[in-house]
Design a protein around this nucleic acid. Structure first.
Length: 273
DNA sequence: TTCCAGGTCGTTT
DNA sequence: AAACGACATGGA
């Protein structure tokens, strides 16, 4: 068991804010599956205790390199966001592996989070390999999949063809190389992929490719933005993105994550996961 | 039973 | 350019 001291870090809010889906809480520990690794982690005050991955991997995955104070000061200039930052202080963006992130969010469209988690676990069970840590069993994210036909009931629905295409046709290195382009160009490139529109693109850009200005607009973000910034008037998603990036600046994506988390918990008090 | 969920696509105005 | 219905599935 390794440990790291952290400041302004809240593990619960970070893991349970809809960025990742394949995690389970058992006792005080979260078991997070990322790629072919299981990360076992719990927080005790300003200390994170973890097992299953190197310190280097851990710091990268949880973006401990972010200048958090600077980021929340910046987005907190807006008083509505400042309220959510105070309530959920320590919520961090994570840095996922791009291809796994892309497939995860292709699987996410018009679905509730428990359903998405189930789908990804089905996919891993069918095409990944067994992995284990301290008695916790799971399956790695697949390298490749066979054709996802209807007989294999993974619950993917109409997304099956998009997932199939992603595994067959996306060059992993090309995906990573989008980091070296501009936000606008990277988004355009991602949107050429079948099943990938502006929202999923922004999720991949924000959660895996370090574009912190990306501002994914799902039903919750749309709701909270219209309530707080558009006088409850229906507003097209692209107008919301445009406004947010202008209003919140280069860390708009961080503001988005606080607003999403805040608004979703308004509707689902206590129960969580 | 109906409604909704971290949307996107093809078609029609 | 914007609006609209279809698309699968599971949980409340």
């Amino acid at each position: 068991m390794d440990s790291l001291r952290v400041e302004d870090f809240n593990l619960k809010h970070t893991i349970e804010s809809g960025q990742i889906f394949r995690y389970e809480k058992i006792g005080d520990f979260y078991y997070v599956v990322a790629g072919d690794k299981i990360i076992k982690v719990k927080q005790e005050g300003n200390e994170l205790l973890f097992d299953g991955v190197s310190e280097e991997f851990f710091e990268n995955y949880f973006r401990l390199d972010d200048d958090y104070k600077k980021i929340i000061n910046s987005i907190g200039e807006d008083e509505r966001v400042r309220g959510t930052v105070e309530e959920y202080k320590g919520l961090r963006l994570m840095r996922q592996e791009p291809f796994e992130c892309l497939v995860s969010f292709i699987c996410s469209s018009v679905s509730a989070i428990p359903t998405i988690k189930q789908r990804l676990n089905n996919l891993a069970k069918a095409f990944g390999r067994p992995i284990e840590l301290n008695g916790y069993d799971s399956h790695s994210f697949p390298e490749q999949i066979d054709h996802v036909d209807e007989t294999k009931n993974l619950g993917l629905g109409f997304r099956a063809k998009y997932v199939d295409n992603a595994f067959k046709n996306i060059d992993r290195d090309w995906l990573v190389s989008l980091k070296n382009t501009s936000y606008g160009e990277a988004k355009q490139e991602l949107m050429k992929l079948p099943g990938v529109g502006p929202k999923i693109s922004d999720c991949v850009l924000l959660f895996s490719l370090d574009f912190s200005q990306a501002f994914p607009v799902d039903v919750w973000v749309k709701r909270v933005m219209e309530e707080l910034y558009f006088e409850k008037q229906q507003t097209p998603d692209n107008k919301i993105v445009e406004f947010a990036q202008e209003h919140f600046g280069k860390n708009a994506g961080y503001a988005q994550q606080f607003l999403y988390h805040y608004r979703r918990l308004l509707n689902q008090p206590a129960t969580s996961h």
